[in-house]
Amino acid sequence: MILLVDLCYRDGSLAREEFVLPIARIVESVGERCRIVHFTRSPGSAARDCKGIILCGTPIMDNGFMDDPSLFSWVPGSGLPVLGICAGMEILTFLAGGTIISCPGIGMTGVRVTASDQLIPGIRMFEAYELHDNACTLPPGYIALAESERCIQMFRDPDRPVYGVMFHPEVGNEWVVARFLTGYCRPSR
């Protein structure tokens, strides 16, 4: 079971279809089940029987998830592999001591891989779809794995499988989610 945390403006919002369900379909395509919980509905308690966490993205105008960052204090303590997508990457940045900066980006962009990693083996460049108003500085100790002209597009915690991606993987880069799941979330807990 994979926990998908919905970061959109309201539980059951119209944005869930756009930012959560496409990720759920990728999870299901690799044979995993998922549980979707809105960030205001105590997702930490829903993580107990899960093998991994995906913090999903939000619409570009939707930053309400950062109004009370203490709602995400359970994430590091869960000990689970985490993939943060766009808004989810911002949360990981905040939790790890990085900074959120204004940096709008909409559309396809070239992404250059800057460090090798299990999640992106043998890839030097790829195209990705970005949809963000902000970007993230690299949290202390974290490793930047990929970048575009504008910003860091992918980073990771050096010691644990905790990844952030700024681009939206459902558009042509489903492999990122699939490799995260198959690489880190397979063993039963």
Binding site: L14, E17, R25, P59, M61, D62, I106, D133, E170
Partner: peptide, 14 residues
């Protein structure tokens, strides 16, 4: 975005 309007695409990658 230029107009500070939300943009929602409920069929995106459905």
């Amino acid at each position: 975005r230029e107009r500070s309007l939300w943009c929602l695409n409920p069929l995106w990658y459905t």
